[in-house]
Computed example of a mutant assay.
Amino acid sequence: MFGAVAAGNPIQLSEEVPNSNGLQHTIVLSSTKPKQYSHITLFQLPNVALPADLVATVYFKLSVDQDFQLFGYLAAEKPSAIFKVTLPGAKGDDSGNLGEIDMDVDGVDTGADSGDVNNISQVLIGISVEPRVQGLAKVQQLKEMNMARASGNAMVLSKNLKNTNPAIPPETPGELAQRFPVVTQQLAANIVQHAYNYLTGFLDPAGNVSIKRFDTWWDKFKVRLANDAHFIDEVTSD
């Protein structure tokens, strides 16, 4: 479904990975001899087209024991992207983590030479195909985090965001709202609309509804949510 190529290396195709914490595809960029990677191009294959309501979020890591880090996305209007990779050891970075990756960079120098960079043998790419609103909300949060780091607010940001790993589900409603504000707002609006649609059928002449009707709605809502959570996407104001 996807392909990727690092400068000076052959094209590698993605493989489907079932039951992998939301990452349905992976690509391993490797070579017989360790080398410095500078630019990586990721693209949809010619016979593949993502539906308009989906995006493919893109993650990178350098070894199997690391966590995937989100760095961008592909979509119907964006079938490919060029990533600029600054590896550990570049510009004094000896953290051992994947360095910065800039989305859609073309013809930009990494600013590092082979003497400053730790050569590596592979880069692992994870790709998650997910609903457009959810995926773009993650990318927007990534951009805000990068802007905060650039402005010197990374420490404050890290204190406020207890769990920013996209592979780990939010543990509290507040954490969900903080990590995915757009999706959370849409979810809240759909729940309220669903309750409104149900309760307006039981209005008395004064425009009031018995609290028992609300309890009945809530019980039915929880059962339906457990059986088919996607029904909430179809709630309308009609």
Rank of each mutant, 00 (worst) to 15 (best):
E15N: 13
R149A: 09
A137I: 02
N119M: 10
V48W: 15
F71G: 06
Q12V: 11
E171I: 06
N21T: 04
E16M: 13
I125Y: 13
T86D: 08
D106S: 09
L199Y: 04
A148G: 13
D67R: 13
F43H: 05
P18E: 10
M1W: 13
K220I: 12
Y198P: 04
F214I: 12
A6G: 05
I82W: 04
N47D: 15
K220A: 13
D116W: 13
A206D: 07
T110M: 07
L136S: 06
G8Y: 04
V17N: 14
K220Y: 14
A112S: 10
I101L: 12
M1K: 15
W217H: 09
D102P: 07
T164R: 14
V223Q: 12
L124V: 11
E171V: 06
Q36W: 00
E16F: 14
I125P: 14
M155L: 15
D53L: 08
D53F: 03
A75C: 05
H25I: 10
M147W: 12
P79H: 01
W217C: 09
G174T: 05
Q193R: 03
N160M: 15
G111V: 06
K222E: 10
M155F: 09
F221T: 07
F2M: 13
L225S: 02
D102T: 04
D65F: 11
M147P: 12
L176V: 07
S210A: 15
K91Q: 10
A150S: 12
K91H: 14
P170M: 09
R179S: 12
P88G: 07
A177F: 04
K61C: 10
T57H: 09
A52W: 02
T200M: 09
D94Q: 11
Q122K: 03
Y198Q: 06
I101Q: 09
S151A: 13
A167T: 13
V105I: 07
T216V: 15
T216W: 12
L203H: 07
P166W: 00
S158F: 06
L54R: 13
V85W: 00
P46W: 10
R213Q: 15
Y198E: 03
A188Y: 05
V17S: 14
N163L: 05
R213W: 14
K84V: 04
T200A: 09
G111A: 07
D106V: 11
S80V: 01
Y198I: 05
V105Q: 10
E171H: 00
L70Q: 00
T184W: 05
R132H: 04
V85F: 04
S158Q: 15
A4E: 00
Q193N: 02
G22C: 06
G111N: 03
F71C: 03
F202V: 00
P18N: 11
L187R: 04
G92L: 11
L13E: 13
K138L: 12
A167P: 02
Y196H: 10
N153D: 13
A229Y: 01
A206N: 09
A154F: 11
P34H: 01
P88M: 08
S80E: 01
Y73N: 07
I211R: 15
P173C: 02
L142G: 05
N160H: 15
V129Q: 11
K84T: 02
Q44Y: 09
G152P: 08
L29Q: 00
